[in-house]
Simulated assay, not measured.
Amino acid sequence: MRVLAAMSGGVDSAVAAARAVDAGHEVTGVHLALSRNPSSYRTGARGCCTLEDARDARRAADVLGIPFYVWDLAERFHADVVTDFVQEYAAGRTPNPCLRCNEKIKFAAVLDRALALGFDAVCTGHYAQLVDGPDGRELHRSVDPGKDQSYVLGVLTAEQLAHAYFPLGGTPKSAVRAEAAERGLAVADKPDSHDICFVADGDTAGFLARELGEQPGQVVDEDGSVLAEHDAAYAFTVGQRRGLRLGRPAADGKPRYVLSIEPVSRTVTVGPRDRLTVAHIQGSQPRWCGPAPTGPVECRAQIRAHGETLPARAWVEHDVLRVELAEPATGVAPGQAVVLYTGTRVIGSATIAATVPAAAH
């Protein structure tokens, strides 16, 4: 099998490529240049898109003895991931850029190009497992729950999974680092990347301010009383408690949380924590990691990358995914993804468009 190994410059993708070589595949390494100005992206432990990372990927490919190339996808990444991220916050939503990168870049732009060049699969260092089931390739959780990345892969379709290759899903991260050291890979002790690769200093609010400028508005309580002024509604997210800078405490003395964000009027509404509980989720653009269900499905729903799963019942109605939670969830923000599981298997996902409070439901 001809395999294109996406090599970020980190330990996971290097070991994944090595395992593909060991399996007897014809492997070619590729590093994705995603920054218009790589020196502006994070360096050292905090990055995954720097010039240093490209050099680390090339050195790993040299150790493995495989061909290596750099693909410039900076413009596509900026349009599909960075611009989408900014626009989502401007619209009062909370996006997940890693999920969008998997959907639009690694398993759309890269996979499409790989197939056109005659490759059979794209190999990555994601911690997830692929299992051949009765209805085709299935996506399952990693055996390492602390590193499991099936949530951010929940946007992949059956066709994309058929050409994906995740060699690390059955191995704990500690064992992957040990294997990298045994193979003589210099990235064995390289720290994992964190946060958002295109936010150079880790200051998301500052990044958005530079992109969108000041957009002042008001912070109000549920009856519309003005509590404070703010510089930008996009600096808030549903469920936020800290940094609200309210002019006066609540009558009961309890903390207040962001309940909703109205981007047109730039109004941020706050209230008590119990108003954040959600019983029903509506998701747009559902995507299925296999055959789409033909009726209601009993499953578990996950709404954060490393959050808990909740028992749920899900069905599609007029192209809208409806998820009824058996236990209320707190702080569910539009723009996040809801990913559905049966056991360890990912069924599919959707982008959260709206929620129904538990009390109203």
Results as ranks from 00 to 15, higher is better:
Q240A: 09
D72S: 03
V338L: 10
G118V: 12
D144R: 07
D274K: 09
I261N: 00
A108V: 01
L117E: 15
P311N: 05
C49R: 05
E327Y: 11
A305V: 10
D192W: 00
T294Y: 02
G136M: 09
V86L: 05
R141M: 10
C98A: 07
V187M: 03
Q336N: 15
E317M: 03
D231E: 11
G65T: 03
E75A: 14
G283N: 05
L310M: 02
Q215V: 00
D120H: 12
A314M: 08
L212P: 13
R177N: 09
W315L: 07
Y257F: 15
I281Q: 06
A353V: 00
H306Q: 04
G331P: 00
R256E: 12
D274T: 14
G47E: 04
I303R: 08
L117H: 15
R76D: 15
A54P: 11
G136P: 00
A250D: 08
V258L: 13
C101S: 07
R248I: 02
D80S: 13
G146T: 05
T330L: 03
T50F: 04
P311W: 09
E327R: 14
K190T: 10
P145Y: 12
T94F: 14
V131M: 07
D319V: 08
L34A: 07
V323C: 09
G170N: 11
Y165S: 10
H280V: 15
Q87D: 13
A54Q: 15
C197A: 10
G92L: 10
A250E: 02
L168R: 02
R19H: 12
P172R: 11
A301R: 03
L325I: 02
G283S: 06
Q240Y: 05
H126M: 05
F77E: 05
V346Q: 06
A354G: 05
H306P: 00
P328I: 09
D189I: 03
V338Q: 11
N37H: 07
A57Q: 06
E103H: 15
A233S: 01
V30T: 12
A301I: 07
D84T: 08
R113G: 06
G239A: 11
R137A: 09
G307V: 06
N96Y: 05
F68A: 02
L168F: 02
R242S: 06
T204G: 02
A90L: 07
V220W: 14
